[in-house]
Each structure stands twice: as C-alpha cells, then as structure tokens.
Design a protein around this nucleic acid. Sequence first.
DNA 1: AACAATTCCTACCAATTTACTATGATTAGT
DNA 2: ACTAATCATAGTAAATTGGTAGGAATTGTT
Lengths: 134, 134
Amino acid sequence: MKMSSKARYGLYIAVELAKQYNGSDVVNVTALSQTTGVTEKYLEQIVALMKHARIVVASRGVNGGYKLADSPDNISVGQVLRAVEDNLEIVDCLHGECVNRRECVARNLWSKLYDNINGYLDTISLRQLAEDKI
Amino acid sequence: MKMSSKARYGLYIAVELAKQYNGSDVVNVTALSQTTGVTEKYLEQIVALMKHARIVVASRGVNGGYKLADSPDNISVGQVLRAVEDNLEIVDCLHGECVNRRECVARNLWSKLYDNINGYLDTISLRQLAEDKI
DNA sequence: AACAATTCCTACCAATTTACTATGATTAGT
DNA sequence: ACTAATCATAGTAAATTGGTAGGAATTGTT
C-alpha cells in the first residue's frame, strides 16, 4: 500500500507552489523541476493532474507557468493527493459493485478506512506543510 | 495506494478462520480454498505469513490444518494486514533515513498518516468483522 | 510577421512488482 | 509403508510504475 511517486512528487510540487504563492506570480516547469528534483517532463504530467483538479492554474506562452488556484490555507493535502494519485482508493470495489461477492465482508472496512485516511489528510493545509507546522 | 490481493485474501482467510474458531479444530488448505475462493497454492503462501506473525498456528501431517492462535476477539484487522501486506507502510522512508532529502517536508505527514491508519485498523477485531458488526 | 519560451497532449518503453503456478521436501497419523 | 497434509522456494506471465520522447498549441517580444 505504497504511495506512488506521483503522489510524493505531487506533494513536493504543491508545497513548493505554496511557498512561492503570492496570488499573482507563476513558477515555470524548469524552476519547479530544479527546486523539487523531479524531471521536467514527468513534472509536467503531474502538475497537469493538479490543473485538471483545479488546484493549480496555468498560463501558457512566454513567461507562463503555474500557481496555486487558491491560498495555501484553503488547499488540503487530501485534495492534492486525490488529484495526483489516481487510485487513492484502497480497493477497487469501493465504488460500484463488488466484482467478487466474497469481498463484501470487508467492504465496510475498506470504506471506513478510506474515510479515515481522507478525513485526516483533509485536516492539513498546504500552508501547514510548507511551514512544517504539522 | 491499493491494498494488494494478499492483503484482501489474507483478511478473508482470517475471517473464515474466525468464523470456524472453536479453540481446537483446525481447517485445512483445501477447505479454506473452497470457502475463500483463493487458489490452494497461493493460499498456502498467504497463511504462512500469518503463521510467521503468530496469528495462526498450524499442525502438519494427516488431519493437519490451521486455526487462529487466539480468540477472534483478541486479533485485530491491523495485525492481520500488517502480517500479510509486506509493505503496509505508505512510503519507504518511514523507517530509517530518507534517501531523498527532499522527502523530509512530508515525512511527518506520512508518519502520522501511517499511525492514523493503524490506529483505526487496530480498533477492529476479527470477530467484529466476522459478525459484520462494524 | 517571425521567433522564442512556455504549456499541453499523447505515445512509447524498460524495469519492477504482482499474482500467481509448480515442484518437491518434510511431517505425522493409520 | 502409505497417505494426507503443511512447508519452502523457484519460476513466470501480466500488469503497473516511473519515467522518456516528440511535437502541437499558445503567447509575449522584437
């Protein structure tokens, strides 16, 4: 039950954007790659996921780049991880029908565990993490 | 962050052993395989992990089989999952040094998330799950 | 209008991991 | 001795992960 590198990297990227957040300036891929250590091409893919989740906004063209869509106070770690980790869900049968009938004894358990995890992750904001106040 | 099939199957197996638990009788691989739907050879490997964790005990030879090492009331879902899911740990750097210095901003987060998950899983006993009282 | 700097999109790929299968040794009751 | 069972370990096909690669689209600057 490991977090993927996308999830880990996504969090670093989000934290970096949180540190540099001032409401207007954007940070480009090259700079983000240097501060986070994630290769540019891979970083592009990860940040795209956050963009689709409307956590970050992008501006294209010369002087383009990324910034958080909102204050780091208003973005939770849970939002970030759900955006980049395509299956934060612990088991497949969580939504929709169980493929395997046998899974049903445990389904409630997985469901509550999932709620538990997200409940925790949603209490922590990017600012908290950026300022190491956790 | 999916649970492995070992974790899911391990839980079914443990629940089945909980249902059949009476302190003395053992259940063999063939029977367990039929009730859980896990193939015999794979099941052998999974139950071996639980044996090494002293959650189940085995008796070999004719009329051999497995039983829980203790009452289902005294075995938690967390114990079972930690036994069969070799890396329930969410990130590698949780124990020992971070390989990547950059991971450190998040390390506290992963550590607390891990505690949170286990804290929850340890509150649920095999009996609760077997009787669907969760 | 041309150019350069940037994001965006999507296909591809090697290495690792997963989810088993297979083989045979060991143990113990009859 | 025979048979029913666990135990140990090696092998393997398929899926997933963790990227890389190439180029199209957009936008500011000259």
